[in-house]
């Protein structure tokens, strides 16, 4: 392996293509991280089962399409509702007992993810499944020398749409005011008559629902299989933690990470790019554990 094979020299057109791939990648990481951002940012819960919520969303899409013949677009909102409900059950049954022990939520949700993966494997088998998307999403849009599959543009748009919706919900709705109040001081919020337990349950359900819809979206892009979630959860965590658990922090970090990954992998290759990215994030967190935008944070 010579240095020449390892290092791709710079050329404008493929480089611009790489930048566009980076944007698409960023939108995927953003969608995967969005639900986690809400859950980690508001509740401080490290939800290791997040990848499995994504997987469940993808499988719900597949079930609806394979057994009932639903069109793909209709599966997206249904996945949101169903996975949101599953998330609500998990919060009610397990997570609300562990708010005083944040590290234990990490472990308990890992147990949840084991159960989900193996249940799906038992019921539907371990082999990869495919999902059919509408014809108009299968085309490839060509602008000069740039080729973009239209489903990636769709996902990019949907990602921004979901961020916008979440922003409206958190900052412009009555529910959002309650969530942010509970986030700042749970006891104080409760003494003002906010049912903090209910707020936590709904927030977790909303975060899980976002994971479900992202799983449904990814199912149009890649094959689905029972342990697909693990492939998203590490990146999603890094986006959330680097973004400081804030909505716009995640937006910015996903963009930066996606572009950096794409540029590194343009010059070298995918795995080396991932190595460099992960190491850079670890070093970044050493100097800014509070995240990219947050000014300061109480050390826990």
């Amino acid at each position: 392996m010579s240095v020449h094979d390892f290092w791709t020299p710079f050329a404008l057109e493929p480089f611009i293509n790489a930048l566009i791939i980076g944007l698409s990648l960023a939108s995927i990481w953003l969608v995967a991280a969005l639900g986690l951002t809400i859950i980690y940012g508001t509740m401080g819960v490290i939800n290791m089962a997040h990848g499995e919520f994504i997987m469940l969303g993808a499988y719900i899409t597949w079930i609806l399409q394979y057994f009932l013949g639903f069109p793909w677009l209709l599966c997206l909102p249904i996945s949101f509702v169903v996975v949101g409900f599953i998330g609500w059950l998990v919060e009610r049954g397990l997570i609300r007992h562990l708010y005083e022990r944040p590290l234990d939520t990490l472990l308990a949700t890992w147990g949840v993810s084991l159960v989900f993966i193996q249940s799906i494997r038992l019921i539907f088998g371990g082999e990869p499944q495919y999902i059919d998307t509408p014809e108009w999403l299968k085309s490839v849009i060509e602008i000069g020398f740039v080729y973009i599959p239209s489903i990636r543009i769709f996902i990019f748009g949907l990602a921004l749409g979901l961020v916008g919706l979440t922003w409206l919900l958190l900052y412009k709705s009555n529910f959002g005011v309650q969530v942010r109040a509970v986030m700042q001081n749970r006891e104080m919020a409760a003494s003002f008559g906010i049912n903090s337990s209910k707020v936590y349950g709904l927030t977790f359900a909303y975060g899980a629902g976002l994971a479900g819809i992202s799983g449904a979206m990814f199912s149009g892009l890649k094959t689905i299989f029972p342990d697909m979630g693990l492939g998203y959860v590490v990146e999603a965590f890094l986006v959330v933690v680097t973004g400081g658990g804030e909505l716009f922090g995640s937006l910015a970090t996903a963009g930066i990470m996606g572009e950096m990954f794409s540029i590194f992998s343009y010059f070298t290759n995918d795995t080396f790019a991932r190595f460099v990215l992960f190491v850079l994030i670890v070093i970044f967190l050493r100097f800014r554990p509070q995240g990219i935008f947050t000014p300061s944070m109480a050390r826990r």
Partner: peptide, 25 residues
């Protein structure tokens, strides 16, 4: 950097992922 708790968990996880990729690649 006085990191603790979940941060250490996530950073060790990321570092592990990085080395896994290296061994693979």
């Amino acid at each position: 950097a006085r990191l603790a708790g979940a941060f250490v968990a996530i950073m060790t996880l990321a570092m592990l992922g990085a080395w896994y990729n290296m061994a693979y690649d």
